[in-house]
Amino acid sequence: MSRYQACFQALRARKEKAFIPFFVMGDPDYKTSLAVVKAALEAGADMLELGIGYSDPLADGPSIQAADLRALNAGMSVDRCLDFIEAIRGFSDVPIGLLVYYNLLLRRGVDRFCRQASEAGVDGILAADVPVEEAKPVLEACKSSGIDPIFMVTPMTTAERLQKILEHAEGFLYLVALLGVTGARGELHRETLQLIRRVRPRTGLPLCVGFGISRPEHVDAVTRAGADGAIVGSAIVNLIARNLQAKGRMPEAVRRYVRAMKRETLLTASRKRSG
């Protein structure tokens, strides 16, 4: 059983949903970033979504663009990111998904990249700019390395494309909550809930919702609508950005935030039980 399967199964047994924070590895520097990830895990994060900083992150809004830049300026190469994941494996066994732009895979060789990622302890790879139609090399490399290929589904994804994605997707399905790039938003989009309801009957894969999720009530809303987890990127990255003058405060800020968000995945379960 993969780490993802085991983790979602355990969560279901405990009537919980997954809370999945996203970090750009090495933001704002290797050491602080590792301390922040550790704090998030201690506060109850169920899985991790980790990004390798990229020069041209097309799918990302200003918060994560800035985080990418901080990580790159701090000297985070692909090799350093693999080291970073190995370091996490020293203290945690949660599923780790890698969010990466395709040129980084291509440059290293897609096979070699996936093999090294797997050795470092990666469970899933989401290539942000690879549509399912072009995914063959990534799919094959993932398969031979024992990595789950993760795909995104958006409100614009047609029924035919959804079908193609479902033929290949493993681990979980990443539902993009809104049209656009990553970024924390105040309100949750109505389309988000419609998307969950549309995809839910089509697959047994866990559904995790990302893009624009920043508040406890968002987590509550998406899990109530049938999602199995919530992914939060920009809101967490913003906590890092806000504390750049006092890096020592970052782990505690993230710990507090993750605890509040994770609590919502429990509350949902208990509310559902009583209701």
């Binding site: 041209d56 097309l58 692909v78 395709y102 040129n103 980084l104 291509l106 440059r107 700019d129």
Partner: peptide, 21 residues
Amino acid sequence: SDGVLHGTHTRILQDRDGQIR
């Protein structure tokens, strides 16, 4: 060298990791 930029597989300026120069 060989790479992908803006959705096109072509020749690009990049570093050893594949970061666009």
